[in-house]
Simulated assay, not measured.
Amino acid sequence: MTIRDTVIRTLAHTNWRLALPALVLTCGSLIVQAASEDPEVVVPTASPTTAAINPAGVVTPAPGTAADAASGVVKAPIAAVAPPTAPQAPAPVDEPLMKLPVNARHMLVIDDTGRVLMAKDADTVVPIASLTKLMTAMVVLDAGQDMNEEIRIEDADVDRLKHSRSRVRVGATMTREAALELALISSENRAASALARHFPGGLAAYEAAVAAKIRALGLTHTSLADPTGLSPANTSTAAEVARIAAAAARYPAIARISSDKSSAVEINGRPRELRNTNHLVGAKGWDIRLSKTGYTEEAGRCLAMRMKSGGQTITVILLDADGSAQRLRDAAAIRKSLAKIAAA
Protein backbone atom coordinates (compact mmCIF):
# COMPACT_ATOMS: atom_id res chain seq x y z
CA MET A 1 0.00 0.00 0.00
CA THR A 2 1.36 3.43 -0.95
CA ILE A 3 1.43 6.47 1.34
CA ARG A 4 -1.25 8.09 -0.80
CA ASP A 5 -3.61 5.08 -0.35
CA THR A 6 -3.05 5.14 3.40
CA VAL A 7 -3.90 8.84 3.60
CA ILE A 8 -7.13 8.48 1.56
CA ARG A 9 -8.34 5.45 3.55
CA THR A 10 -7.65 7.17 6.87
CA LEU A 11 -9.51 10.35 5.89
CA ALA A 12 -12.44 8.36 4.49
CA HIS A 13 -13.15 6.44 7.70
CA THR A 14 -12.20 8.91 10.44
CA ASN A 15 -12.86 12.48 11.41
CA TRP A 16 -9.86 14.29 10.03
CA ARG A 17 -9.18 16.23 13.24
CA LEU A 18 -9.02 13.04 15.32
CA ALA A 19 -7.03 11.20 12.67
CA LEU A 20 -4.37 13.83 12.22
CA PRO A 21 -1.87 12.59 14.91
CA ALA A 22 -2.14 8.97 13.74
CA LEU A 23 -1.83 10.10 10.15
CA VAL A 24 1.42 11.93 10.86
CA LEU A 25 2.85 8.87 12.63
CA THR A 26 1.78 6.56 9.80
CA CYS A 27 3.36 8.73 7.12
CA GLY A 28 6.61 9.01 9.06
CA SER A 29 6.78 5.26 9.58
CA LEU A 30 6.16 4.52 5.90
CA ILE A 31 8.78 7.01 4.80
CA VAL A 32 11.39 5.43 7.09
CA GLN A 33 10.44 1.97 5.87
CA ALA A 34 10.72 3.02 2.23
CA ALA A 35 14.15 4.50 2.83
CA SER A 36 15.41 1.40 4.62
CA GLU A 37 14.27 -0.83 1.76
CA ASP A 38 15.79 1.36 -0.93
CA PRO A 39 18.98 -0.31 -2.25
CA GLU A 40 20.38 3.08 -3.16
CA VAL A 41 20.40 4.29 0.46
CA VAL A 42 23.98 4.01 1.69
CA VAL A 43 24.99 3.91 5.34
CA PRO A 44 28.40 5.56 5.64
CA THR A 45 31.15 3.55 7.28
CA ALA A 46 34.08 4.65 9.38
CA SER A 47 37.49 5.11 7.84
CA PRO A 48 39.94 2.18 8.07
CA THR A 49 42.34 2.16 10.93
CA THR A 50 45.97 2.99 10.40
CA ALA A 51 49.15 1.47 11.77
CA ALA A 52 52.79 2.38 11.88
CA ILE A 53 55.85 0.30 11.01
CA ASN A 54 59.01 1.34 12.78
CA PRO A 55 62.53 0.72 11.37
CA ALA A 56 62.67 -2.61 13.19
CA GLY A 57 59.73 -3.86 11.21
CA VAL A 58 57.24 -3.51 14.06
CA VAL A 59 53.65 -2.80 13.05
CA THR A 60 51.53 -0.99 15.64
CA PRO A 61 47.85 -1.08 14.63
CA ALA A 62 45.53 1.70 15.68
CA PRO A 63 42.87 0.84 18.30
CA GLY A 64 39.60 -0.73 17.21
CA THR A 65 36.80 -2.69 18.72
CA ALA A 66 36.83 -6.46 18.99
CA ALA A 67 33.35 -6.65 17.48
CA ASP A 68 34.43 -4.72 14.38
CA ALA A 69 37.51 -6.89 13.96
CA ALA A 70 35.54 -10.11 14.34
CA SER A 71 33.00 -9.12 11.70
CA GLY A 72 35.59 -8.30 9.07
CA VAL A 73 33.61 -5.19 8.16
CA VAL A 74 34.28 -1.64 9.29
CA LYS A 75 31.14 -0.38 11.04
CA ALA A 76 29.91 3.12 11.67
CA PRO A 77 30.50 4.13 15.28
CA ILE A 78 27.50 4.59 17.58
CA ALA A 79 26.80 8.26 18.15
CA ALA A 80 27.58 9.48 21.67
CA VAL A 81 27.73 12.79 23.49
CA ALA A 82 31.36 13.90 23.62
CA PRO A 83 33.25 17.16 23.93
CA PRO A 84 34.10 18.76 20.58
CA THR A 85 37.46 17.87 19.12
CA ALA A 86 39.57 19.37 16.38
CA PRO A 87 38.63 17.99 12.96
CA GLN A 88 40.96 15.37 11.53
CA ALA A 89 41.44 14.41 7.91
CA PRO A 90 39.92 10.93 7.46
CA ALA A 91 42.02 8.16 5.99
CA PRO A 92 40.95 7.13 2.48
CA VAL A 93 38.10 4.63 2.50
CA ASP A 94 38.12 1.83 -0.04
CA GLU A 95 34.66 0.32 0.10
CA PRO A 96 35.22 -2.68 -2.23
CA LEU A 97 38.30 -3.75 -0.27
CA MET A 98 36.88 -3.08 3.17
CA LYS A 99 33.81 -5.21 2.47
CA LEU A 100 35.67 -8.07 0.75
CA PRO A 101 34.59 -11.41 2.27
CA VAL A 102 37.32 -13.93 3.10
CA ASN A 103 37.18 -17.47 4.40
CA ALA A 104 40.10 -17.10 6.83
CA ARG A 105 38.87 -16.40 10.34
CA HIS A 106 41.70 -13.96 11.06
CA MET A 107 43.21 -11.65 8.48
CA LEU A 108 45.22 -8.48 8.06
CA VAL A 109 46.22 -6.57 4.92
CA ILE A 110 48.55 -3.57 5.27
CA ASP A 111 50.50 -1.46 2.79
CA ASP A 112 54.14 -0.40 3.01
CA THR A 113 53.22 2.72 4.99
CA GLY A 114 51.61 0.58 7.68
CA ARG A 115 48.05 1.60 6.75
CA VAL A 116 45.56 -1.15 7.53
CA LEU A 117 43.62 -1.82 4.34
CA MET A 118 41.57 -4.71 5.62
CA ALA A 119 41.26 -6.55 8.92
CA LYS A 120 39.22 -9.39 10.36
CA ASP A 121 39.62 -10.38 14.00
CA ALA A 122 43.32 -9.52 13.69
CA ASP A 123 44.05 -9.30 17.42
CA THR A 124 42.79 -12.71 18.55
CA VAL A 125 45.49 -15.11 19.76
CA VAL A 126 45.45 -18.35 17.75
CA PRO A 127 47.90 -21.11 16.71
CA ILE A 128 50.09 -20.12 13.75
CA ALA A 129 51.59 -23.50 12.77
CA SER A 130 54.63 -23.30 10.44
CA LEU A 131 54.57 -19.52 10.21
CA THR A 132 56.78 -20.08 13.26
CA LYS A 133 59.61 -21.01 10.89
CA LEU A 134 60.05 -17.34 9.94
CA MET A 135 61.08 -16.68 13.53
CA THR A 136 63.29 -19.79 13.56
CA ALA A 137 65.06 -18.56 10.43
CA MET A 138 65.65 -15.08 11.87
CA VAL A 139 67.11 -16.41 15.11
CA VAL A 140 69.37 -18.85 13.26
CA LEU A 141 70.68 -16.11 10.98
CA ASP A 142 71.16 -13.76 13.93
CA ALA A 143 73.56 -16.31 15.45
CA GLY A 144 75.97 -15.81 12.54
CA GLN A 145 76.90 -19.48 12.23
CA ASP A 146 78.66 -20.96 9.22
CA MET A 147 75.89 -21.66 6.70
CA ASN A 148 78.11 -24.19 4.90
CA GLU A 149 78.64 -26.29 8.02
CA GLU A 150 77.00 -29.70 7.80
CA ILE A 151 74.33 -30.65 10.32
CA ARG A 152 72.68 -34.00 10.89
CA ILE A 153 69.06 -35.05 11.30
CA GLU A 154 68.69 -37.01 14.54
CA ASP A 155 65.93 -39.06 16.10
CA ALA A 156 65.15 -36.05 18.30
CA ASP A 157 63.99 -34.22 15.16
CA VAL A 158 61.23 -36.75 14.41
CA ASP A 159 57.71 -35.40 14.90
CA ARG A 160 56.07 -37.53 17.58
CA LEU A 161 53.34 -34.98 18.28
CA LYS A 162 51.53 -34.83 14.92
CA HIS A 163 53.39 -37.69 13.21
CA SER A 164 53.85 -35.53 10.12
CA ARG A 165 55.58 -36.99 7.10
CA SER A 166 59.11 -36.00 6.19
CA ARG A 167 61.28 -36.26 3.09
CA VAL A 168 64.43 -36.33 5.20
CA ARG A 169 65.49 -39.51 6.94
CA VAL A 170 67.13 -39.77 10.34
CA GLY A 171 70.88 -39.73 9.80
CA ALA A 172 70.73 -37.47 6.74
CA THR A 173 73.30 -34.69 6.54
CA MET A 174 73.10 -31.31 4.82
CA THR A 175 74.51 -27.84 5.15
CA ARG A 176 72.87 -25.35 7.48
CA GLU A 177 71.85 -23.34 4.41
CA ALA A 178 70.19 -26.40 2.86
CA ALA A 179 68.29 -26.99 6.11
CA LEU A 180 67.12 -23.37 6.06
CA GLU A 181 65.84 -23.79 2.49
CA LEU A 182 64.07 -27.01 3.44
CA ALA A 183 62.39 -25.26 6.38
CA LEU A 184 61.28 -22.18 4.43
CA ILE A 185 60.45 -23.58 0.98
CA SER A 186 59.17 -27.07 1.82
CA SER A 187 58.25 -26.35 5.45
CA GLU A 188 60.30 -29.37 6.48
CA ASN A 189 59.85 -29.88 10.22
CA ARG A 190 62.91 -32.04 10.78
CA ALA A 191 65.13 -29.42 9.16
CA ALA A 192 63.70 -26.68 11.39
CA SER A 193 64.20 -28.86 14.46
CA ALA A 194 67.80 -29.63 13.48
CA LEU A 195 68.54 -25.93 12.99
CA ALA A 196 67.37 -25.25 16.54
CA ARG A 197 69.32 -28.19 18.00
CA HIS A 198 72.52 -27.03 16.31
CA PHE A 199 72.09 -23.50 17.62
CA PRO A 200 75.14 -22.28 19.64
CA GLY A 201 74.45 -23.51 23.15
CA GLY A 202 71.78 -26.00 22.06
CA LEU A 203 67.99 -25.87 22.41
CA ALA A 204 68.03 -23.92 25.65
CA ALA A 205 70.05 -21.15 24.02
CA TYR A 206 67.78 -21.25 20.97
CA GLU A 207 64.69 -20.82 23.16
CA ALA A 208 66.30 -17.90 24.97
CA ALA A 209 67.14 -16.28 21.63
CA VAL A 210 63.53 -16.67 20.45
CA ALA A 211 62.25 -15.10 23.66
CA ALA A 212 64.65 -12.19 23.18
CA LYS A 213 63.54 -11.76 19.57
CA ILE A 214 59.90 -11.69 20.61
CA ARG A 215 60.68 -8.93 23.09
CA ALA A 216 62.78 -7.00 20.55
CA LEU A 217 59.89 -7.00 18.05
CA GLY A 218 57.44 -5.87 20.71
CA LEU A 219 55.28 -8.97 20.37
CA THR A 220 53.12 -9.06 23.47
CA HIS A 221 50.69 -11.74 22.27
CA THR A 222 53.14 -14.20 20.69
CA SER A 223 54.35 -17.39 22.33
CA LEU A 224 56.51 -19.99 20.56
CA ALA A 225 57.02 -23.38 22.17
CA ASP A 226 58.99 -25.14 19.41
CA PRO A 227 60.92 -24.24 16.23
CA THR A 228 58.56 -26.04 13.83
CA GLY A 229 55.08 -24.76 14.70
CA LEU A 230 53.72 -28.27 15.27
CA SER A 231 52.78 -27.42 18.86
CA PRO A 232 49.38 -25.74 19.28
CA ALA A 233 51.13 -23.65 21.95
CA ASN A 234 52.83 -21.70 19.14
CA THR A 235 50.39 -18.80 19.07
CA SER A 236 50.15 -15.22 17.88
CA THR A 237 47.74 -12.80 16.23
CA ALA A 238 47.37 -11.72 12.61
CA ALA A 239 48.62 -8.26 13.63
CA GLU A 240 51.74 -9.66 15.29
CA VAL A 241 52.42 -12.15 12.48
CA ALA A 242 52.51 -9.08 10.21
CA ARG A 243 55.28 -7.72 12.43
CA ILE A 244 57.15 -11.02 12.15
CA ALA A 245 56.81 -10.99 8.35
CA ALA A 246 58.00 -7.37 8.15
CA ALA A 247 61.02 -8.19 10.30
CA ALA A 248 61.82 -11.38 8.34
CA ALA A 249 61.72 -9.42 5.06
CA ARG A 250 64.72 -7.42 6.31
CA TYR A 251 66.84 -10.59 6.03
CA PRO A 252 67.88 -10.96 2.35
CA ALA A 253 68.36 -14.72 2.74
CA ILE A 254 64.82 -15.24 4.08
CA ALA A 255 63.28 -12.99 1.43
CA ARG A 256 65.19 -14.75 -1.36
CA ILE A 257 64.63 -18.31 -0.20
CA SER A 258 60.96 -17.99 0.70
CA SER A 259 60.10 -16.27 -2.60
CA ASP A 260 61.71 -18.98 -4.76
CA LYS A 261 59.21 -21.14 -6.64
CA SER A 262 61.63 -24.05 -6.46
CA SER A 263 65.17 -24.83 -5.46
CA ALA A 264 67.64 -27.70 -5.30
CA VAL A 265 69.64 -28.65 -2.23
CA GLU A 266 72.03 -31.48 -1.47
CA ILE A 267 71.04 -34.07 1.12
CA ASN A 268 73.63 -36.75 1.80
CA GLY A 269 75.56 -35.32 -1.14
CA ARG A 270 72.71 -35.84 -3.60
CA PRO A 271 70.57 -33.10 -5.15
CA ARG A 272 66.98 -32.85 -3.97
CA GLU A 273 64.42 -30.59 -5.67
CA LEU A 274 62.19 -28.46 -3.48
CA ARG A 275 58.93 -26.74 -4.39
CA ASN A 276 57.39 -23.84 -2.52
CA THR A 277 54.36 -24.78 -0.43
CA ASN A 278 52.74 -21.51 -1.55
CA HIS A 279 51.60 -22.27 -5.10
CA LEU A 280 51.15 -18.58 -5.81
CA VAL A 281 54.92 -18.03 -5.74
CA GLY A 282 56.12 -17.78 -9.31
CA ALA A 283 52.59 -17.85 -10.71
CA LYS A 284 51.70 -15.47 -13.54
CA GLY A 285 50.81 -12.00 -12.32
CA TRP A 286 52.18 -12.53 -8.80
CA ASP A 287 55.24 -10.68 -7.51
CA ILE A 288 55.80 -12.27 -4.10
CA ARG A 289 58.75 -11.03 -2.05
CA LEU A 290 58.33 -13.22 1.06
CA SER A 291 56.12 -16.20 1.78
CA LYS A 292 55.40 -18.84 4.39
CA THR A 293 52.50 -21.22 4.69
CA GLY A 294 51.38 -23.21 7.71
CA TYR A 295 48.97 -25.93 8.70
CA THR A 296 47.96 -27.92 11.73
CA GLU A 297 44.52 -29.12 12.72
CA GLU A 298 44.35 -26.45 15.42
CA ALA A 299 45.66 -23.59 13.24
CA GLY A 300 43.90 -24.37 9.98
CA ARG A 301 45.52 -23.15 6.77
CA CYS A 302 47.71 -20.10 7.31
CA LEU A 303 49.67 -17.74 5.08
CA ALA A 304 52.10 -14.89 5.67
CA MET A 305 53.04 -13.14 2.45
CA ARG A 306 54.52 -9.88 1.22
CA MET A 307 53.90 -8.96 -2.41
CA LYS A 308 54.17 -6.02 -4.79
CA SER A 309 50.91 -4.45 -5.87
CA GLY A 310 50.42 -1.06 -7.50
CA GLY A 311 54.00 -0.03 -6.74
CA GLN A 312 53.66 -0.85 -3.05
CA THR A 313 54.63 -3.78 -0.88
CA ILE A 314 51.52 -5.31 0.61
CA THR A 315 51.59 -7.67 3.59
CA VAL A 316 48.82 -10.28 3.67
CA ILE A 317 48.23 -12.46 6.72
CA LEU A 318 45.60 -15.21 6.63
CA LEU A 319 45.04 -17.45 9.66
CA ASP A 320 42.70 -20.42 10.04
CA ALA A 321 41.30 -20.83 6.54
CA ASP A 322 39.27 -23.98 5.92
CA GLY A 323 41.58 -25.45 3.30
CA SER A 324 44.39 -24.79 0.83
CA ALA A 325 41.92 -23.88 -1.92
CA GLN A 326 40.12 -21.41 0.35
CA ARG A 327 43.44 -19.87 1.38
CA LEU A 328 44.41 -19.38 -2.28
CA ARG A 329 41.01 -17.92 -3.13
CA ASP A 330 41.29 -15.44 -0.26
CA ALA A 331 44.71 -14.31 -1.46
CA ALA A 332 43.52 -14.06 -5.07
CA ALA A 333 40.47 -12.01 -4.09
CA ILE A 334 42.63 -9.61 -2.07
CA ARG A 335 45.09 -9.22 -4.96
CA LYS A 336 42.25 -8.55 -7.44
CA SER A 337 40.78 -5.87 -5.21
CA LEU A 338 44.19 -4.23 -4.75
CA ALA A 339 44.68 -4.17 -8.53
CA LYS A 340 41.32 -2.44 -8.99
CA ILE A 341 42.26 0.14 -6.40
CA ALA A 342 45.60 0.81 -8.09
CA ALA A 343 43.88 1.20 -11.48
CA ALA A 344 41.18 3.56 -10.16
Score class of each variant (00 low, 15 high):
Glu181Gly: 05
Pro252Ile: 03
Gly201Arg: 14
Leu195Tyr: 01
Thr235Tyr: 09
Ser263Gln: 07
Thr222His: 07
Leu184Gly: 02
Phe199Gly: 03
Ser263Met: 00
Phe199His: 12
Ala204Asp: 15
Arg256Ser: 09
Ala194Ile: 01
Ser263Glu: 03
Gly282Asp: 14
Ala247His: 00
Ile244Glu: 01
Trp286Thr: 06
Ala183Lys: 04
Arg270Phe: 10
Ala239Arg: 04
Ser236Gly: 04
Arg197Pro: 07
Ala212Trp: 04
Ala249Ser: 09
Met174Val: 13
Asp260Met: 11
Thr220Pro: 06
Ala247Leu: 01
Leu224Ile: 06
Ala253Glu: 10
Thr228Trp: 06
Pro252Phe: 00
Ile267His: 13
Trp286Met: 00
Ala225Phe: 07
Lys284Glu: 13
Ser236Cys: 07
Thr228Leu: 07
Glu188Ser: 04
Ala283Asp: 11
Leu203His: 13
Ala183Ile: 03
Val210Asp: 01
Gly202Val: 12
Ala196His: 11
Leu230Cys: 10
Lys213Ser: 09
Val241Asp: 01
Ala233Phe: 11
Asp287Ile: 03
Val210Phe: 03
Gly282Lys: 08
Ala253Phe: 05
Ile267Val: 15
Arg215Asn: 12
Ser193Phe: 09
Gly285Arg: 13
Ile254Asp: 04
Arg197Cys: 08
Ser263Asp: 05
Ala283Gln: 12
Ser259Gly: 03
Val241His: 07
Arg243Val: 07
Ala212Lys: 12
Trp286Arg: 02
